[in-house]
Write a protein that binds this DNA or RNA. Structure first.
Length: 415
RNA sequence: GGAGAGGUGGCCGAGUGGUCGAAGGCGCUCGCCUGCUAAGCGAGUAAGGGGUGAUUAGCCUCUUCGAGGGUUCAAAUCCCUCCCUCUCCGCCA
């Protein structure tokens, strides 16, 4: 949720951001509605104040006097009720419209509408000029089985098998160890959440169609640990010395991938279920921009350690999620595809999620909505694929990156 | 799944229709006192919104006692629905 003061005092800033996102929202209508709600609310409040005052007087009266007073106030009570009903109706309309307004866009976010407009910041490593793709490798090595995945669960599901499965646990522990050393607190959050957690993190209403739901129990499967981790501190107020709070959350992630028919159909690059280690930070507003760079640095260190060629892009404004003002993606080189593809992502969501979730910091000037950020430490599935493709050998085997061997217990995978 | 108990401020806990946003205690903050520590004394101490101010003052006002609805001139208190927590039994990875 954006700051209402922004709407009132600096609508141009907001208008400019919406334009950069290519979002079509009628700000003037919103501004007018907000003003209307505010003035109606004031009317209703002063009527209510009158009623409360009258009530206090009645409490002190007795007998006939009391009865007379009660009679005269009853019309006022009806007026208060009517006034509040009007306010509630308009306020609900305003709220639902506000929920659809995305966050501002950072000045230094890349311009453009699609991922084709992403701004490349740097490339590291030496991309291999050819190689098999992960689907072929995974099948040949018998560590990924998508055929039976489809049989059991449908398309976009797979089994990790043998050393492929062990690789998963090795990556999780390797990433966790890094994050613990960097001061993060490990977390295993619930992967089923209530609606408010998704609304609070900005996934609802914007990305509702990407989320699996369990209607009978009014629960939803999260697409990232960001959701439960953000909501974890909902409604809390922190002292400045408590911040920053950094969590390393492990969770399975569920995504419906609606609207991606025909994309990435081979292998398990794009699946409905995968595991991920996610960084999530609660921080003083002053520091979120610097923290965003720190998260990116951690992500780069991790990818470097796996000896995977990659590039960093500044994501185009039109391709940002509703809650992010700026986002960096790290794209790993995939030799089989001869292309860079996203394996991690980190976003500064500033006060957008924190305002919706009511998470604040107690500052001298009063309580202030704090800032939140999130970033992928290791999207396990895609990382496995990147390892397979970039560390494949001419003989068809795959060499495990040095840094990972103490976790895997083996140094290569062969058929 | 069955039976019961309960959800009040940072915490504990009182409050069953009328100056109750809420006794008391703990904690915390500031001041006083005490040559350390402890104790004592005094004052203060929820959040959010709106208005008016010089938007880190002050003042006015509304909302919030798990959530939502209802009754009433008036609801923490009465009624309805829902949610959550705890205990016992059953089942269970």
């Amino acid at each position: 949720m954006i700051d209402l003061k922004l709407l009132r005092d600096a609508p141009e800033l907001l208008r400019d951001s919406l334009r950069r996102r290519g979002t079509d929202i009628d700000l003037d209508e919103l501004i007018a509605l907000e003003e209307q709600v505010r003035s109606l609310r004031q009317e209703a409040e002063s009527l209510r104040a009158e009623q409360k005052e009258a009530g206090r007087e009645i409490a002190a009266l007795q007998g006939d006097e009391k009865q007379a007073a009660i009679d005269s106030v009853s019309q006022l009570a009806q007026k208060v009720k009517d006034a509040n009903a009007r306010v509630d109706e308009l306020a609900a309309e305003l709220d639902s419209k506000l929920l659809e307004v995305p966050n501002l866009v950072a000045e230094d976010a890349a311009d453009g509408m699609t991922d084709a407009d992403n701004l490349e910041l740097r490339r590291l490593g030496t991309p291999a000029s050819d190689g098999k793709d992960h689907a072929a490798l995974g099948e040949a090595l018998d560590i990924i089985d998508t055929e039976r995945g489809a049989k059991v669960s449908g398309s976009r599901f797979g089994f990790l098998k043998g050393k492929g499965a062990l690789l998963e646990f090795s990556l999780v522990r390797w990433a966790m160890d890094h994050l613990v050393a960097a001061g993060f607190t490990p977390m295993v959050p619930p992967v089923m959440v209530r609606e408010h957690a998704l609304e609070g993190t900005g996934f609802f209403p914007e990305a509702r169609e990407q989320v699996y739901s369990i209607p009978k129990d009014e629960l939803f499967l999260v697409g990232t640990a960001e959701v439960p981790l953000a909501a974890y501190h909902g409604d809390e107020i922190f002292d400045p010395e408590d911040l920053p709070i950094r969590y390393a959350g492990f969770s399975t992630c569920f995504r419906r991938e609606a609207g991606t028919y025909g994309k990435d159909t081979a292998g398990i690059f794009r699946v409905h279920q995968f595991d991920k280690v996610e960084m999530f930070v609660f921080i003083d507003p002053e520091e979120s921009a610097a923290e965003h760079d720190r998260l990116l640095e951690i992500e780069e260190q991790l990818v470097k350690e796996l000896e995977i060629p990659y590039r960093v892009v500044n994501v185009a404004a039109g391709d940002l999620g509703a809650s992010a003002v700026k986002k960096y993606d790290i794209e790993a080189w995939f030799p089989g595809e001869q292309n860079y593809r996203e394996i991690t992502s980190c976003s500064n969501t500033t006060d957008y999620q924190a305002r919706r979730l009511r998470i604040r910091v107690r500052k001298e000037s009063g309580n202030e909505v704090l800032h939140t950020l999130n970033g992928t430490a290791c999207a396990v599935g895609r990382t496995i694929l990147a390892i397979l493709e970039n560390h494949q050998q001419p003989d068809g085997s795959v060499v495990i990156p040095e840094a990972l061997r103490r976790y895997t217990g083996f140094d290569s995978i062969s058929a």
